[in-house]
Structures are given as structure tokens and as C-alpha cells.
């Protein structure tokens, strides 16, 4: 019952805040990783190189799918912006369902840019079905396919270190984010720019103008404050022996 109430509250808040944001836009804080990502989108076209977006191996059928959806939102945006380039962006995934969605998202990006004839299905790839085989396939792309920047965004564990190492050896900057704690700590040490924690889910707000994405961030903040207050009050009540 509690989960149902939270869900309804989240839906209502998302709707209300979206309407409010559409009337008065608000600024969001600068995150260096997103600044670099946006810059790398433009530079890749100028340099005649491609972006490699690696979406991890999050399954759509469990809780790790959330980060994969965030990665797909980024991919949709990147595909639309770089589809006219001589070197189109290439995407890799470590799960077959995610691979299908990757191809569909890339195709949608090409359609939106009006260049659907230029779409080739081999730019969206399933590089392996286990974490390490996926990483091995993604390493090859970063090193051998004229990549300007590798963007790793999704569910990745320690294998993110292999992709980061391959990118570094090829002098390819890496921007990384994972919902996995091991993946986050590895990307923090090895990526040029890393997104920590829920920053991964802010991708839509930084790349799209639609108010619903910044409204999502506001709703997350509201829930976060409710949890903080709940934790402090709970700890206080426990301390004085009421609960």
C-alpha cells in the first residue's frame, strides 16, 4: 500500500511540476561531465570522428533497466545530432533486449534528423552477452573505429575498467556513469569525467529542453528531502527511546 501511495504521489508531482516548469523555466547546476559531453558532440563532427556510446548490460526485465533507459535517452539525442556526420556514432550493448532497443533508438534518431536512409543497422551492436565479453567487444570499438570520445552510460560493474583502459591506450577521452557501485568507483578513477550516483539519470535534463526532464530532477529532490527528514526524525526518535 505504501509503495502504491509513493507511486501515485510521484506521478502527481511529476505532472504538477512539469506544468509549473513549462511556465517558468529554472536553471540546473553545471556538471562538468555533461559540459564535456555536449562539447564532444560538436567536436566529433568537426574532427571527422565518431562517438562510441556504450550502454552496459542492464536487463530490461529487472531493476538495472533504469540506467539502460537513461542511456537510451542519451543515445536518442546523440543519434539525432550526429546522424549527418560522415562518421556516425556507434553504440554497443551487453544485453540482447537492450541491443534491439539500441538499434530502434538509433533509427528513430536518424528519422528525426530526416536522414533515415543513412541508417545502417550495424552501428547498434550487441558486443557480448556476459559482462566481460561485452567489455571485450566494446574495447575493440574504442581502439579501432576512429572514435573521438567514448561515453559509457548504463549498468556496468568492474568490467568498466577494461573499457576505460582501452580508451586511454587509444587516447580517447571517456565520460562514464554507472548505477553499479563498483562501476562508479572504477569510473571515478579511470574516466576523464564521471557521473556519480543519480547524476546518471539527469542526462535527459541536460540534453533536452523538455520541461518534464527538469521536473523529474525536482521530484527526485523533493523525495530526497522527505527521506532525509525521515531519517533524521527516525534517528532522533530512536535516540530518545520513543521507537
Amino acid at each position: 500500500m505504501n509503495a502504491f501511495i509513493i507511486l501515485i504521489l510521484a506521478v502527481v508531482l511529476l505532472g504538477v511540476v512539469t506544468l509549473w516548469k513549462r511556465r517558468s523555466s529554472s536553471a540546473i547546476r553545471e556538471i562538468p561531465a555533461f559540459t564535456r559531453l555536449i562539447r564532444s558532440l560538436g567536436l566529433s563532427i568537426e574532427d571527422g570522428k565518431r562517438l562510441h556510446i556504450s550502454l552496459g548490460h542492464g536487463r530490461m526485465t529487472d531493476g538495472r533497466g533504469g540506467s539502460a533507459f537513461a542511456g537510451l535517452a542519451l543515445l536518442r539525442n546523440v543519434a539525432e545530432r550526429t546522424s549527418v556526420s560522415d562518421m556516425p556514432s556507434v553504440a554497443s550493448a551487453g544485453d540482447s533486449t537492450l541491443g534491439l532497443l539500441t538499434q530502434d533508438t538509433l533509427e528513430a534518431g536518424y528519422q528525426a534528423a530526416g536522414v533515415e536512409d543513412a541508417y545502417v543497422h550495424t552501428i547498434g551492436r550487441v558486443t557480448g552477452l556476459t559482462p566481460f565479453s561485452y567489455a571485450a567487444g566494446a574495447m575493440y570499438i574504442s581502439q579501432n573505429e576512429n572514435v573521438s570520445t567514448t561515453i559509457v552510460l548504463g549498468n556496468l560493474g568492474s568490467e568498466a575498467g577494461l573499457i576505460a583502459d582501452a580508451s586511454e591506450r587509444a587516447n580517447v577521452p571517456l565520460i562514464g556513469a554507472s548505477d553499479d557501485l563498483a562501476g562508479q568507483s572504477i569510473l571515478f578513477t579511470s574516466a576523464q569525467e564521471a557521473l556519480i550516483g543519480e547524476e546518471l539519470f539527469a542526462t535527459g535534463a541536460y540534453l533536452n529542453d523538455d520541461a518534464v526532464y527538469s521536473a523529474s530532477l525536482t521530484v527526485q529532490d523533493v523525495f530526497r528531502w522527505v527521506i532525509i527528514v525521515g531519517l533524521i526524525v527516525g534517528a532522533g526518535l530512536k535516540f530518545i527511546g520513543i521507537i
Binding site: 511529476l14 533504469g66 540506467s67 537513461a70 535517452a73 550516483g197 546518471l200
Partner: peptide, 18 residues
């Protein structure tokens, strides 16, 4: 770790709703 996981869970919830 708990703080990061709570943040990730909230992000997942809102992404799922979208």
C-alpha cells in the same frame, strides 16, 4: 553507499515513470 543507492533508486523510479 546508502545515500548513493537511494539516489539511484529515485532516479530509476522517475525514469521508469517517464
Amino acid at each position: 553507499v546508502r545515500g548513493i543507492l537511494i539516489g539511484v533508486s529515485l532516479g530509476t523510479l522517475l525514469t521508469g515513470l517517464r
